Simulated scan of single mutants.
Amino acid sequence: MEFFKAAFLGESANTGGNQPKTFTYQSETGPVEVPTNPERIVDLSSAPNVFALGGNIVGVDQWTSMNPLFSEELKDVEVVSDESLEKIIELEPDLIIAAPYMKNIDKLKEIAPTVVYTWGKLDYLTQHIEIGKLLNKEKEAREWAEDFKKRAQAAGEIIRAKIGENTTVSVIENDDKQLYVFGNNWARGTEILYQAMGLKMPEIVKEKALGPGYHTLSLEVVPEFAGDYIVLSKYSDGDLSFMETDTWKNIPAVKNNRVIEIDSKASTYSDPITLDHLIEIFEKGFLGN
C-alpha cells in the first residue's frame, strides 16, 4: 500500500501549492474530498457521462474504449483497469471514478480521491446529475436531463399516437451463447422506451425482467416474449444464427418488419451521448422519419 502512495506522491511532488481547490463530495460510500475542477480523470465505470460533461479523461476502461460512439475521441486515452495500478499512477490522476465490485478500491484511494458509483442505484437522469455534481457541472447536467426528458416524452406521445397506446415493445439481445430480454433500466435504450416514452412491455417481460433487469431466453421461448415491436440489440461479432431460424422468422414483429436494430456495443450505457444517439434511431424506427 505504501508503495502506491509513495510512488504517486513522488510523481506529483512538483505540483506543490498548485493543487486544485477541493470540496467535499457526498458519495454513496461517504464524504470524499475531491478537486473542484478535476483536470486528470481516470474513469473505470462512468466514462461516457464524464465525457459528455467535458471531463478530461486520461484513463478509461476497456469496454468504453471499444464503444463506437467514443472510440475515435478516446483512441489516444490509456486503457486501464482497477488492476493496472502502476499504469494509473503514471497517469497522475487527480480523480478516479470506480464501481464497488472492483477489487482494488482501497489501493485506488491511495493514488487519488476515488468516488464509487453503483450502477442502477440511481435512475439514469439522477445518475448523470450526480456525476455533474462531482465535476462541478451540476447546472449543465440538470439542463440536459430536463431537456432530454421533455424531448423523449414528446417523441413518445407521437409514437404512441401512431402505433397505439397498448402496442408492446420488447428489447432483446444476443451474445455468443444465448438471448436476453430486458426490463426498463438496463441500458439498450430501455430507459428511453419504457420510462421516458411510456411505451409498454409485454406482460411476461414485465413479470420476468422488470425486477432483475433482464431475463435469459432460449430461442424456443423468444416468441412468447416478443412484443408487437422488437428492439434487437445486436452484437455483430456474436452468434446471429437465430435470425435464420423459422422460430425467429415467424415471430409477427419480424414478419411485419417491426424490428428496430441497434448496435449492442454502442448501447450499453445511459449517458447523454448514447441516449441522444438512440432516440434518433427509435424515432426513425417507429415513425419512419
Rank of each mutant, 00 (worst) to 15 (best):
K87G: 05
I97F: 02
G288P: 00
I163S: 09
V58S: 01
Q153G: 07
E140A: 13
Q26P: 03
A13P: 00
Q178M: 12
G227F: 04
T15R: 15
K206S: 05
L217K: 01
D43V: 01
E157H: 15
F70D: 03
Y269E: 09
Y101I: 07
N289T: 14
F282I: 03
I131F: 02
Y235C: 01
T29E: 15
F8E: 11
A196P: 03
E283L: 12
E220M: 00
F23E: 02
I251A: 05
I281D: 09
S233N: 10
G285N: 10
L95D: 00
F23L: 02
V80N: 02
S236N: 07
E165D: 15
P223Q: 03
K149E: 12
G211T: 09
I158C: 09
A99N: 05
Q127W: 10
P202S: 07
E165H: 15
E28M: 07
K149Q: 11
K107D: 09
Y25R: 11
K249N: 14
E220G: 01
G16F: 13
I131H: 09
N104Q: 01
P35Q: 01
L125G: 13
T268I: 14
L91D: 04
F8N: 13
K121G: 01
K137W: 03
Q195F: 02
T268F: 14
V171I: 11
K177V: 11
P93N: 00
E224A: 14
A155L: 15
N184Y: 14
K21R: 13
N185F: 07
Y194M: 06
L53S: 06
P31V: 08
D263G: 12
V222P: 02
P38M: 10
K149T: 06
Q26N: 11
T24P: 06
R40D: 00
S45Y: 06
S236P: 02
V42M: 07
R40F: 01
P223W: 05
L95C: 06
E138H: 09
D176W: 12
N166A: 15
L193H: 02
Y214E: 14
T216F: 13
W248Q: 08
L135C: 02
D43W: 02
G132N: 04
S267L: 08
N104H: 04
I192E: 12
I159M: 07
K234G: 06
D239K: 00
Y269A: 08
E11N: 12
A112S: 10
R142H: 03
T190S: 11
E28N: 07
S264C: 12
L275V: 04
Y180T: 14
E33K: 06
V254N: 08
E138Y: 10
L278H: 03
V60R: 00
